[in-house]
């Protein structure tokens, strides 16, 4: 359970950290504020998971001990979330790949047989519904916008595509979590994620 919680905590913390790097440097004030919102949501979510993990340990460690004082090798996050922001297109593509997984993952996690985890999922899925909408809309906007933006978002997907597989490949503790009923069956969400993605890419080419 601890490993599973740390996976969720690290994913959200690292992506929140990356988005925080944009603060004050966004392409427009409104976009800047939206990305800060995403960062705030994600770091808030990670705190819920870290606090739960710390409580489970019962060793007096805090959320900050878990977030700040573990070695890099002990981090469980997927590689996708730690990818540098790059240009805005890379940020959008990275977030979209993550959000479209995260959304379905949390939807399933709402059914967790662990009450505390289910409660965190219920709260988070509301936020992530908005995250997915934000990144989807930007994928469409950039894909459809200008020749340059189309090329940039295409390049971004080309560069980040390789990291998507990890999201659906369960680590042993994820399989254990799914079997025990507090986790998520990644195979079940795989098909839903794929259909969201193909729907979106169709919209994009349809507009051209």
């Amino acid at each position: 359970m601890r490993d599973f919680l740390l996976l969720l905590a690290d994913n959200t913390q690292i992506l929140g950290h990356r988005l925080g790097e944009w603060c004050g440097h966004g392409p427009e004030l409104e976009i800047d504020m939206a990305m800060t919102n995403l960062a705030l949501d994600l770091i808030g979510q990670s705190r819920n998971y870290y606090q739960y993990a710390a409580d489970l340990e019962g060793a007096g460690r805090t959320e900050d001990d878990l977030a700040y004082l573990r070695d890099a090798r002990e981090f469980r996050n997927c590689l996708l979330v730690e990818q540098p922001n790059g240009d805005f297109a890379h940020t959008v593509a990275r977030n979209f790949l993550f959000d479209s997984w995260h959304f379905f993952f949390l939807q399933a996690l709402c059914q967790s047989n662990d009450d505390r985890l289910a409660a965190i999922a219920v709260k988070s899925v509301k936020e992530v519904t908005y995250h997915l909408r934000w990144s989807s809309e930007w994928v469409i906007r950039l894909g459809d916008g200008t020749e340059e933006s189309h090329k940039r978002i295409q390049d971004a997907f080309d560069n980040l595509w390789t990291y998507r597989g990890e999201l659906l490949a369960p680590a042993p503790y994820e399989t254990e979590a799914a079997n025990a009923g507090y986790g998520v069956d990644l195979h079940a969400i795989s098909s839903r994620k794929c259909s969201t993605f193909s729907a979106l890419t169709q919209t994009q080419s349809g507009n051209e």
Binding site: G24, H25, G26, P27, E28, I31, D87, F88, I140, R141, L142, D144, G145, T146, E148, S149, R152, N207
Partner: peptide, 23 residues
């Protein structure tokens, strides 16, 4: 310099958003 960089590097994003809205 930081403000200029953000504004200049964001130009293509703002243009894309406008172009998409116009379409």
């Amino acid at each position: 310099a930081a403000r200029r960089k953000a504004w200049e590097e964001g130009a293509w994003v703002r243009e894309a958003a406008m172009a998409h809205a116009a379409k």
